[in-house]
Design a protein around this nucleic acid. Structure first.
Lengths: 331, 331
DNA sequence: CTGAAAGCGCTTACAG
DNA sequence: CTGAAAGCGCTTACAG
């Protein structure tokens, strides 16, 4: 392994001079030395040792991305894959390295962050319950996503989940629907609750209702499609909390001999390209995941550069993408 | 930050004794000291500094996962997301940390590995061209996936891509098809070429042919579905190199007024659950990604524990999952 | 079973 | 513009 010392010896200078060149502090080194040293670095294939750097400077250039869960969290939710995949290049562009963690237990968060002296962290998934503790224990810049934590001083990038529900309700009503259902994954999540709330309140404001028996938790129930098809009171409009779940429900319905949108109209959530490949093409509430990821990384680095900058809580817009999974009953 | 020294002072022992306890070398410490030290560690919330550990022991517990590409590689290919998502928990289980890199340029590989003193690395995607250089430059355990590099001494986990093509061809022939096409993403990849080869050679062995004009590169062409629909000689059977691409082709065909499997029969590749949600449900060649990931990690750690263990090249089986996207022409 | 010494490869802080 | 010294928090290797 080639070290600063090796380069210094070969160049006939001290390690400090080499260190300055490696770190681009050119104003402090003579042009002649800069050239000479750069040449030797290249020739020897010198790569700075990040562990040594981190140790002596007491800060690494590691960004930890912490995804909630302990299985294959990238397949369990395409959303997670999309977020992580967007974040990686942004982090790399800035010369930082990304550690990816799937974490379930609170203690593991602090452990992972501390042991590597992470420079900052981005959280994907539901951590609302632990936000306060996480922030108290870790004095590095932290950015949450989709958080509805009541902690005020928090960096967060979310979307207008409530509006998503509103848009879905309005669209269904517009199309003449009168009876509704909602299917959510992991109903304990505030994100899922907000989408439901926007949906329900908008229905009620128009004189419709969403009975609690029509609110299904896909995590608890085995086959939501079958449940919907066997409701006593027939529903026609189903709002589903993700595109993936919507795809699965449409498929199950088909197995049961029911068709979308003829028998049931469906609106999904996320706006993944895959929704456009389904039959019928999925009408959905879309969010801009690339933008969300970019903003999360931007906020993080703003706080890394200036730890005193104020906490930012950004809420991105959502929009309805009209495709073919909702039938018009008005005509 | 709490250090070994702090714990040592509080316990009235040397840092070495604390270090031994932290590292579980209990046989070398008195029971009394073990208890006392563990208590203080817990009380103080001591977390070992991995950068210091790595520096002094000249080896980190970082596993680098290197995905070929520079964009959102987890969305560009669901396969990448599946592999990375499987690998993460396996690596964590072993007490290691995972760094995720998206890399395009060869030089960045060595740089990333060296700067963090990575303990090992797993490669996802096409690196065939650089395998030799990568192995020469990095003396740590390396596991490639889906490699067709001619380098002999290489750890690799792949699948029987050729057999995948054979199975697809046989199935089509079985169902009475006589004219064929192949659509691949990134035709320069050996994986894609092997699938094609198995497909083509099996067709030819049965007296059929696959003309080069019926071999489409989805990366080069804008709309493979349109191309297929406008072939002079009408084809009925299309083998596609991934489920995602198959889904997109089926959807495009529908837009063009052609249906699967009535007008065109399609076989995909990968066996993702999403294939089962499509209409028609996608017949496909499936591979066991979870197994592939587990084996890759197992091989890696076998070589970490014993660097002299022999190079392993594992080829996993594939199988055809029969669903509804292939029409039977025989009856 | 315990510990003092040296060192890993850098950076920080200072002196010149 | 340059460099000598100290130190980051551990582990290795040795002595007892």
């Amino acid at each position: 392994m080639v070290t600063l010392k090796d380069i210094a010896r070969e160049a006939g200078v001290s390690v400090m001079t080499v260190s300055r060149v490696v770190n681009g502090q050119y104003s402090k080194v003579s042009e002649e030395n800069i050239r000479k040293i750069q040449e030797i670095i290249k020739k020897r294939g010198y790569v700075p040792n990040s562990t040594a750097r981190s140790l002596s400077s007491k800060a690494s250039n590691i960004i930890s991305v912490i995804v909630h869960g302990s299985g294959n969290e990238l397949m369990r939710s395409l959303y997670n894959a999309a977020m992580v995949g967007e974040i990686v290049p942004y982090v790399q562009e800035r010369g930082y390295f990304l550690m990816l963690h799937f974490i379930d237990k609170y203690d593991d968060i602090t452990h992972s962050l501390r042991t590597w002296n992470a420079r900052g962290a981005i959280f994907i998934g539901t951590f609302d319950h632990d936000v306060q503790k996480i922030q108290e224990d870790n004095m590095i810049p932290l950015v949450f996503t989709d958080s509805y934590s009541r902690v005020r001083q928090i960096n967060n990038v979310g979307i207008d989940d409530y509006k998503g529900g509103v848009l879905a309700a309005k669209y269904f009503i517009d199309k003449g629907h009168k009876s509704f259902a909602y299917v959510g994954e992991c109903m304990t999540s505030s994100v899922i609750q907000q989408r439901l709330k926007g949906f329900k309140e908008t229905l009620e404001a128009s004189g419709f209702s969403l009975s609690s028996s029509h609110i299904l938790d896909a995590t608890a129930i085995q086959d939501p499609a079958r449940a919907i098809c066997s409701f006593k009171e027939q529903v026609t409009a189903v709002f589903v909390s993700s595109d993936a779940l919507a795809a699965s429900i449409i498929s199950s319905m088909r197995t049961l001999g029911r068709n979308v949108p003829e028998d049931y109209s469906i609106i999904g959530f996320d706006g993944f390209p895959m929704g456009d490949l389904l039959a019928p093409r999925l009408t959905t509430i879309s969010q801009d995941i690339a933008k969300k990821a970019r903003i999360a990384v931007d906020i993080l680095f703003r706080h890394i550069q200036d730890p005193s900058s104020p906490a930012e809580n950004i809420v991105l817009d959502v929009q309805l993408i009209e495709r073919d999974s909702v039938r018009s009953l008005s005509k």
